[in-house]
Structure formats: structure tokens, C-alpha cells
């Protein structure tokens, strides 16, 4: 103990401080990037925000216009995707939490679902292209909606299952002891207990597909004009951003930034609402 090596001690302290400063910097850098991205979006996007954005369709090159058709298309396809994906996801998640639990089938599905959750969305686009676009012979908003549904599905399956598993088994047993049949236990007890979490899951899924571009590129394609025909190509914000941002026309680039701002704000609001919902649920517990 007497020959305590002070030099070595200081070296260890220095190394530690150095790396901890590095870790501070990493955190600051992460936050700075988030701030920088949001700042750029507002800076470049807000300038283009005016009434025309919401009342006019996308313009031909070099002219002024708005994003009405793209906003409409995005909303339609997101609603379609959510409407198709959510019920299926909730049912599948229910089976895994309530009936399957630890069965081999449930474990396999859980694994596959986790893979689908992070599978490249462009591959989902190719799949829907082959199955729907080739079969129907043309691009359509239906195909776009189905591609989005395939992205909604795994998110909803996962959160539904997780949230139902959080419901204490005592509640299920109590309901069964009162003589409730299984379907009532699930629908009147488990679903109610897990409601906030399940809504969070759906909101997160909607947030995820709102900005999805890759699967729409070759399913819904794009449409320069206002179209309400679900059986035809339909404009949507992400593909408009893709097309307009890479164009040489300043008007188009400005619209791309405005569209990017709209999408980001929507997605962030959805994320924050979802988080607020799930945190109030946690507080109640």
C-alpha cells in the first residue's frame, strides 16, 4: 500500500475523464444533429407555407402551386393502410398474448414479426408491386395503401402483444372466476386495461408510414393532378418530395421543403402524443 503509484492513478483518472468527456460530446452531438435537422426544416420550409399549399395541386415545372393533391393522397393511403393493418395486427397480437403465449407457433410468429418490423420497406414495395401492380396491370392507390398496411401490421402486432402481456393475469383469472367466457375476458377486461398502450402502438405505426417513400415509389407512383380515384396512381407527399427535391426548379425545391416540414411536424406530433399516452398509463399503474 505504501508504494501507491500516483502516476498510474492519475493516468487512470485522466483516461476516464477523457472518455467521459467523449461520451458527453456524443450526447451533445446527437442532440445537435436533431436540432440542426429540425432547424433546417423550419428555416427552409416555413417560407413556402401559404394558403396555396393547401388549396392548389402540384404545379408543372417553373410555376407556382400547392400540395393539395399530395396531402390528400397521403392521407387517403395512410388511412387505408391503417384501416387494413390495424385490425389484423390487433387480432394477431391478441392471439399471441392470450392464446399462443409460449407455444412454438407464437414464438415463431414473434420472431418473424420482429424481422418484418425492421425489414427494408423497399422490399415490401417490390412484393406489393409483383402481387398487385403486375396483376392489376397498373399502379394504383389501392396498392400503395396495401404496401403501407404491411408496414403498419408488424408494429401493431408487436405493441398489442406487449401491452396485453402487461395486463396482470390476476385480472384475467378474476374475470374468469366471475364466470365470464374467454371472449368477454379479452374484450371487456384485457382490451380495456391495455387500451392506452394499444392506441400508442397504432399512432406509432401511423407515424412510421406517414413518411414512408420507398414502398410507394412503385405502387402508388405519383400523379401531378388531383385524383380521388383509388384505382389510379395517386400523388403523395413523400414521393413528391423525392421528385421535387431532385429537380432543378427552385419552385419545386421550395415545395419539397414545405412538404418535408409538413411530414416531419405530423410525425413528431404523432410520436409525442403516443409517448404522452403511454406515460400517463405508466403513471396510473
Amino acid at each position: 500500500m505504501q508504494n501507491f503509484d500516483m502516476g498510474r492513478y492519475h493516468r487512470r483518472r485522466r483516461l476516464s475523464s477523457l472518455l467521459m468527456i467523449g461520451s458527453w460530446c456524443a450526447a451533445v452531438a446527437g442532440l445537435a444533429i436533431l436540432g440542426l435537422i429540425l432547424f433546417t426544416l423550419f428555416w427552409r420550409g416555413v417560407g413556402g407555407l401559404n394558403l396555396a399549399v393547401f388549396t392548389e395541386s402540384t404545379p408543372p415545372p417553373g410555376a407556382a402551386g400547392g400540395l393539395l393533391n399530395a396531402i390528400f393522397g397521403s392521407v387517403m393511403m395512410t388511412v387505408l393502410g391503417t384501416a387494413l393493418g390495424t385490425p389484423l395486427g390487433i387480432l394477431a397480437g391478441t392471439w399471441m398474448a392470450e392464446y399462443g403465449r409460449n407455444s412454438r407457433l407464437a414464438t415463431t410468429i414473434r420472431f418473424i414479426n420482429d424481422i418484418l418490423l425492421s425489414a427494408p420497406s423497399i422490399v415490401i414495395g417490390l412484393f406489393v408491386y409483383e402481387v398487385m401492380v403486375v396483376t392489376m396491370g397498373h399502379f394504383s392507390a389501392w396498392a400503395g395503401g396495401c404496401a403501407l398496411a404491411l408496414l403498419v401490421l408488424p408494429v401493431v402486432v408487436r405493441t398489442t402483444e406487449d401491452m396485453l402481456l402487461l395486463v396482470p393475469d390476476g385480472l384475467r383469472e378474476a374475470a374468469s372466476a366471475l364466470g365470464s367466457p374467454r371472449w368477454m375476458v379479452i374484450s371487456k377486461v384485457c382490451y380495456r386495461a391495455a387500451k392506452a398502450g394499444m392506441i400508442t402502438g397504432v399512432l406509432l405505426a401511423v407515424a412510421r408510414v406517414t413518411g414512408e417513400t420507398a414502398p410507394l415509389l412503385f405502387t402508388a407512383l405519383n400523379n401531378q393532378f388531383m385524383s380521388t380515384d383509388m384505382n389510379a396512381p395517386m400523388a403523395n407527399l413523400p414521393v413528391v418530395i423525392f421528385q421535387f427535391a431532385l429537380s432543378p426548379y427552385p419552385e419545386w425545391q421550395q415545395l419539397a421543403w414545405t412538404a418535408a416540414l409538413l411530414i416531419t411536424v405530423t410525425v413528431l406530433i404523432l410520436n409525442i402524443v403516443a409517448r404522452a399516452l403511454s406515460s400517463t398509463r405508466l403513471k396510473k399503474d
Binding site: A27, G30, L31, I33, L34, L36, I37, T40, L41, R44, A207, R208, T210, G211, E212, T213, A214, P238, I241, F242, A245, L246, A256, W257, A260, I263, T264, V267, L268, N271, I272, R275
Partner: peptide
């Protein structure tokens, strides 16, 4: 707060990173 902020980065759609990457 910091955890949430970092997780919000995950929520930003990839096309936003694209347009930001291209122009900034």
C-alpha cells in the same frame, strides 16, 4: 428528455434525412 429526443431521431422519416443530406 434526452432519451426522448434521441428516440425522436428514429421517428424522423428517412426522406427527411435524404433532403437534409442533399441540401445541407
Amino acid at each position: 428528455a434526452i432519451s426522448t429526443a434521441i428516440e425522436l431521431l428514429a421517428g424522423i422519416p428517412s426522406i427527411i434525412y435524404g433532403i437534409w443530406g442533399l441540401f445541407v
